[in-house]
Design a protein around this nucleic acid. Structure first.
Lengths: 119, 119
DNA sequence: TCAACACATCGACATCCGTCAATATTGACG
DNA sequence: CGTCAATATTGACGGATGTCGATGTGTTGA
């Protein structure tokens, strides 16, 4: 059939697709950072840990108060708390042999503030 | 039946650790659901997809507008959009050969609302 | 009808993640 | 010291995840 020049030039797409759009999108570095924080929260056990700590009237929660309600082994709970501490969501304070955890003030607010502009 | 009600029969623990605490914590099922949603968001590529779509003034964004800024292959972009659609974050609307995506109204608000009580 | 296009799905691969048992480390108390 | 209790770390294992090439599925247009 006739030659429609397959190789050289793309026929200008007349349809309404592929508008270039202003690039007000999230930068790759910012997306990477936010993804790391969300990944730390995106686990049922860790969400419950944060929830338990947030529900405490006291400023800090002992690690021993986490293991039983979660139904997980002690190393696993320790692993999850480490992930949350490394993500800047929890504070660890060691008092004697016990480890007390508390929410880092403003950490979850920053998460919400990062999601809000996407609404 | 156990011996006594859990609150009264507890032998007084020597130290100040392991206070029983009121169980106002997140329920396991709720944690599982929220974790699934957060897992869908906890990826740099998917965050940028949501960001690009949210930044569009138009109501919907063509899939072809996603591949180039992300620098990922077409199957990978299709995979990520599927994850976001399955999580109830994006809407897919097929117009001819093109697929248009838009934010599900209120979806990200619900995520923020689930995180807020933990502050 | 047929070729080109846009997107979805499949198969495969490497990597990461959640979990536990075993062990190490640290602090308290004789 | 030496022992015990609370927590952290290590090693291992199965399963989930992100990525791509190849292929399948519809739709458009000549």
């Amino acid at each position: 059939m006739d030659a429609m020049t397959p190789g050289t030039a793309l026929p200008v797409l007349d349809a309404a697709c592929c508008v270039s759009s202003g690039d007000a999108a999230m930068a790759p570095a910012e997306a990477e950072t936010l993804a790391r924080t969300l990944k730390a929260l995106a686990d049922p056990a860790r969400l419950r840990i944060v929830s338990i700590i947030a529900a405490q009237d006291a400023g800090a929660t002992c690690a021993c108060d986490l293991q039983e309600p979660l139904g997980l082994s002690q190393p696993t709970v320790s692993h999850h708390t480490k992930v949350l501490v490394d993500a800047g969501i929890l504070n660890r304070e060691k008092r004697g042999t016990w480890a007390y955890f508390s929410l880092v003030p403003g950490a979850l607010d920053r998460v919400a503030a990062a999601i809000a502009p996407l609404r």
